[in-house]
Amino acid sequence: MSELNYQHEVRGYLTGFGLALLLTLVPFALTVWGGFGSVTTFVVLGGCALAQFVVQLRFFLHIDLRRQKREDLQLILFSILLLVIMAGGTIWIVGNLGMRMM
């Protein structure tokens, strides 16, 4: 393994770290100093979290769109699909019940 390769991969981790740092600072800053409406805040919070999720998957866990890695991506996407069905379904159902009990 050549030295160049090592540097290259270290840079990958550092890039990921930098992006993740940014995507952490924004939501914290927004919550502490922000004066936006709650809808805007929630959208930004969710967006930053999703983006950081992708960044960490890409730079720390090496999941990307290259063809030979498609199967790995499919495993994760399938899990996330089920997670969305289960967690989203739970929030929907229990939330709906809660509203009808008010």
Binding site: L82, I85, W92, I93, N96, L97, M101
Partner: peptide, 18 residues
Amino acid sequence: SFTVWLHHFFTMGQSANV
């Protein structure tokens, strides 16, 4: 099979749309 669990508790009180 992951999308149908609510049919075990239709009568729990959620709205008809659910």
